[in-house]
């Protein structure tokens, strides 16, 4: 296992590359999802009031 982690001496480069890539992709996906939900909730908030206003 240790030998696997060592990556033939290039551990620092390989794991940094994979780690940062994973981090970036996760952060992008999660932030997009969460911002979408937040925006949808605020739309829901505004819309009923709008419809009430019209009724």
């Amino acid at each position: 296992m240790a030998e696997f982690l060592d990556m033939g001496g290039y551990a620092a480069f390989v794991w940094t590359a994979y780690g940062l890539t994973a981090l970036a992709l996760v952060v992008l996906a999660v932030s997009s999802l969460r911002a979408g939900k937040k925006a949808r909730d605020r739309v829901e908030q505004l819309r009923p009031r709008r419809r009430k206003g019209q009724a």
Binding site: A29, S32, L33, A35, G36, A39, R40, R42, V43, L46, R47, R50
Partner: peptide, 16 residues
């Protein structure tokens, strides 16, 4: 995900 976000942002600017 981002398309849903952009659509809701557009709706927000319309509503506001």
């Amino acid at each position: 995900y981002r398309m849903k976000l952009e659509i809701n942002l557009r709706k927000l600017s319309v509503l506001s």
